[in-house]
Amino acid sequence: MRPQVEPFFDSTTSTFTYVVHAGDGTAAAVIDSVLDYDPKSGRTSTASADRVIAFVREHDLRVEWLLETHAHADHVSAAQYLKRHLGGKIAIGEQIRLVQHTFKGVFNLGEDVPADGTQFDHLFAADEAFAVGALSARALHVPGHTPADVAYQIGDAVFVGDTLFMPDVGSARCDFPGGDAHTLYKSVRKLLSLPPQTRLFMCHDYPPASRDANCETTVDEERRKNVHLHEGVSEDEFVEMRTARDRTLSMPVLILPAVQINIRAGDMPTPESNGVRYLKIPLNAL
């Protein structure tokens, strides 16, 4: 089955959001939505999510799933906003509990943020089958970037999250808490064992100056051309490269606000006595 895939690119965070469906008037899934967040002012806005809502309504789609590939560190999820306007179940891999446990300690979060995944409507087991209307789907457990990363296989399309990037960009970092380059190598090999014509859709693109941002490639192209993980690159070679590269990277701009919100399934902290919601900024913790 070949689903229709509509990408939405947020240039501020270099994130692709996808609406996946079988045609007008059918069921749909929204993958890796973006809530606009200004780190200078602490203000949120919904322009990116509203583009998704407009498309869904224009094509008379019924949103069944709001899928997260992982608890993102580079953008804030709009899942709660989309659920209020479009419906659907917010879902992520069941290993999100490990990520919640880790970051609950980092942010010293209270009992109102349980580390049991209950903030999400559904937690996928590894390789669990599900459906988007008439489209068959699977949640592929692909840890390495974080312990909880999931790639969603819907028909002939796979939404890889932060495992792979476009062939000329390579692979995701592995230096976040719970990340592991050996594990990521195995996860990528799992993805690249799929049929060569399988379409792969990136969560992000950080293109060189020679091209515009792009979201789609294939298993065959990644096998032949990925600068970090093409055929013939050994696990040890990859781990050495990835570890050295990660040492040079700074933290994502939005990691502190984003992770606090995203481990809550995109929900915001409870308002305090003055009616204002607050995020924590831990000093010298990461």
Rank of each mutant, 00 (worst) to 15 (best):
L184D: 10
A78L: 12
V19A: 05
M268C: 08
H21P: 03
M251V: 06
A28I: 05
E6M: 13
Y37I: 11
L140D: 00
Y37A: 13
Q153S: 02
S48F: 11
R43E: 05
T44C: 05
R43V: 12
C215W: 14
A47P: 04
L256N: 04
S45P: 02
S273R: 11
A151H: 00
F103A: 10
Q4I: 15
T198L: 02
T13W: 11
L82P: 12
R57W: 08
D74H: 12
S33P: 14
A258N: 09
T69G: 04
A265Q: 03
Y206H: 10
V276K: 01
A129E: 12
A29F: 06
F165R: 13
T248M: 09
E272W: 03
G105Q: 14
A115G: 09
Q100F: 06
N226R: 04
L249C: 05
A49M: 11
N284R: 13
D149P: 00
L249E: 07
L200S: 01
R242A: 15
E272Y: 07
G105S: 09
F159Y: 03
S210N: 05
D180L: 02
P207I: 03
Y18V: 01
A73F: 14
L191R: 00
L35I: 08
H230D: 00
F124M: 13
R62N: 13
N262Y: 08
I96R: 03
R173N: 08
